[in-house]
Amino acid sequence: MDLYTNGNLDQLRKRLDAPADAAAADLIQDPQLVSIINSWNIIPETIPETFPDTLRSFFQIFLQPPPLVDPHQIRRTQGFFEINAALILSLLGFYSLPYTYAFADGAEVLVRSKKILDNPGKRLSETALFVLECYRPDAFLGDKNVLLVLAKVRLIHALSRIFIDKYARDWNPGWGKPINQEDMLATNLTFSLLVSRGMERSGVSVSKEQRDGLLQYWALVGYYMGIDPAFLPHTSKEAFELERLIRKRHLKSSPAGKKLVKSLLRFYQQELIRPELAPFMEAILAFYMGGEMSQVLGIHKASLIPDWVFRSLSNSGLFSVGSGPSRFSLLYQQFVIQSKKSLGTAVSISLPSLQ
């Protein structure tokens, strides 16, 4: 039986992330635990006995050996990112992030976050930092920093679900559960399938091995993010089939999606780190999104995009991180400096204060 069917995805819209939701409920009951977790550099090998059982069980997930992985493939994909980091990070802002706004039901979660609407630059920088942490050299092999990052993001999603359930009186059950399994699958694709697709639209050749490597890498990330592993695509064919079905099911114009993309464009045009790109922002988004998605979001290719713009995105990127093979530590440091300069404060991935 075909895995990617309307019936299966209908079920995924009702499914959430039970371990993370239970752990998040514990954090709300004892907000002081948030400060303890935010103080960690890595997840300790022995979880404090003072933690509730559900929170201890949640972190134990990250202390277990990962599913069978190919260390050579992981290192190849990390190297692929390091070489193409400038363009990949640019694609987060010009393709991956606005892509999620074009799906009306999922956009209803995003539009309820004042941080996303009022400070899209912070949201974009946090997403870029998340990607950098995921590609940290030796991540998933020996480096354990990434596991704490993934645990935090997973808990942030769970807290968002709880707050929407408690406070969003206008939530429509027809949209599905907030941050459900199908929406998490779609988001996972934005870091793998959409990155390779966006690179090719930028004129950068991506081999089948590299495309499949990205999918397998983000399938591993998806596993730790609480996505049902059975539905995570590992080949380009599977990813194409899944994305096409999700697009068919959910691509729809909505006030939420248009509000989100206007907020993002306003940030680009007013506060962009690369001001020389500002006049072309809407045209760049329209180029990557394509006609159908651009129409849904109400964006237009109002001007021609000079060739130097794409060269600039490949060479320096949205965050001015530099081009070509480079040491990850230098790349990371450049991003931290540039994002702090833009936002006025250091970007980090931390659980929100609940007190």
Rank of each mutant, 00 (worst) to 15 (best):
G198T: 03
G213Q: 01
D183R: 12
S207P: 07
L189M: 15
M199R: 04
E182K: 10
L214G: 00
L215G: 00
G198P: 11
G213S: 02
K208R: 11
K208F: 12
L185K: 04
Q210C: 06
A186L: 15
F191N: 11
R211C: 06
K177I: 12
A219G: 00
T187C: 09
S207Y: 02
G203M: 00
F191S: 06
Q216M: 04
P178H: 04
S196F: 15
G213W: 07
Q216I: 06
Y217V: 01
N180G: 03
E200T: 12
E200A: 04
L194K: 11
Q216P: 01
T187M: 11
S192C: 10
L193E: 13
V206K: 04
A186T: 14
G213R: 02
S202C: 05
Q216H: 00
L194E: 12
L194D: 11
D212Q: 11
Q181E: 07
S207V: 03
D212K: 05
L215N: 03
L189R: 15
F191L: 15
K177D: 04
S205W: 09
F191D: 14
M199E: 02
S205V: 11
K177P: 08
P178R: 03
K208I: 11
W218I: 08
K208C: 08
E209H: 05
M184W: 08
E200C: 05
L215P: 01
Q216D: 00
D183W: 13
P178F: 02
L189H: 14
T190A: 15
A219C: 00
